[in-house]
Design a protein around this nucleic acid. Sequence first.
RNA 1: GCUCCCUUCGUCUAGUGGUUAGGACGCUGCCCUCUCACGGCGGUAACAGGGGUUCGAAUCCCCUAGGGAGUACCA
Length: 503
Amino acid sequence: MRNFAQYPPDVPVNCSGSIAKQICPQSCSGDLMIVRTRFAPSPTGVLHLGSVRTALFCWLYARHHGGNFILRIEDTDRQRSTDENVEAILEGMAWLGLDWDEGPFYQSRRFDRYQEVVEQWLQDGKAYHCYCSKAETDALREQQMAAGDRVRYDGRCRDLRKPRSGVDPVVRFRNPLEGEVVVNDKVRGTVVFENAQLDDLIIARSDGSPTYNFSVIVDDYDMGITHVIRGDDHLNNTPRQMNMLAALGAEPPEYAHLPMILGADRAKLSKRHGAVDIRDYEEQGYLPAAMLNYLVRLGWSHGDQEIFSVGEMISVFDIADVNQSASSFNPEKLRWINQQHIMAKPAKELGQALLPYLLKAGLDPARGPNPSDVAAAFHERAETLTQMAASARYCYENFTVIEANAAKKNLRPVVLEPLQAVRERLAALPEWTKEGIAAAIEETAASFNLNLGKIGQPIRVAVTGGAVSPPIDVTVWLVGQERTIRRLDHALELIAERAAAND
RNA sequence: GCUCCCUUCGUCUAGUGGUUAGGACGCUGCCCUCUCACGGCGGUAACAGGGGUUCGAAUCCCCUAGGGAGUACCA
């Protein structure tokens, strides 16, 4: 366990020049520090698309600059944080390959440190006890709302001399009353906030536990975070955090506030829009790299390029190319990108990736072709691995019925003879190779003066039970000799029955 | 209510004062073709509105409208 009190560790946070230049593999000019980013999810929910995109940008930025990526679990709300959610976050990150250099750190284990700062601030007059009850502040809010005023705590306990007895006070930060806070955001530009608009926020609850805005700044400070990259729902928190950082005597980090990701209907992303939990996408057969590729293009672009490997993303990613407007999640494009990644993946690796999906589909890989051969045959015709496993079912398992329309259209008495002939040729093949199979089918077609389609499609239906499959030679090859012959025989019987019925 | 942010094809985006406003997904036509895909060549469709500044605005400024976030003893 790392000793947090020791933070920042012996890292040159303000090194000027040589070390940073040596370390940054992109030889980015003007770097004055070693980049340290953090992803700080709260385990009050699972890892969803929006948070993954945030994590990705933090990770890319750190990796691009040869810096460190830190994972911090913000679980100060003990009621709503769960171990299951922590697990979901860790699993999601692992699946995506978003590896962290330090952590995961849990805020719940740092309460002593927060308490220490609170005490210090109380002593220094940077914070004060507030004895207002919830009812009291609620009433104040309503009153202000009704009067059309800005809604904020009015600081009535700011200069209280004596404690009120019988109430456990909260601790509030003494925010400056005047002046302004200027945020130089890497994506928003300069954003100015008036201190008069801010109020004295609560930093410790009446039970002593720290609140979000406060624990964030002591952690960001202790952990030497140089770049805070987060969702733009935090932009409004930034001036408060900067004021507190100043109270701590710290220089503020660089800030970059990312636009939100919305659902296809421009509403906040929710269950209605499909999967929320990132792990659902794994379940559905998406490749992690494709997921990252899709997400990186939401709010960021690099010219006209759409497809990026993870390595490419790292090398070209720059906060300066992040745009300012919210984007909405588009499942069709995700599927297309997944397909592009499936096509680009070497058959062997793709076969590896496919394996668990075959198992999940209830198929036994031992009872059929090598998954990498299946992957090679299907990689151009599957948008997800789940789909691919489903399409390859006939390679591993016998089907009970032939698709009605396909049978009706293709298994007709006219093909009885050619099909019989091809069956014999295939049965006679000494070696089961794609070339041999292709030759057998072509020769049969030629001998009956048929084009390939006239015989290929009936074979396809007989062998797969449907009208769609990879090229016929490949399909037959994957199904295997024994099974092919058996299925052709079965089709032949059906055709014969049909012919008899027609007589 | 108040504070802050955002606004280019349906969607993701390029664009930083002069472009026939480009690309991608989707949809669609044709080609390739043993099916399905992949691929190739086309088509469809956008600068929220109004004022300025300028010889010239998607690009700069102002206003309006619409969307979003925050305004918690949530994060």
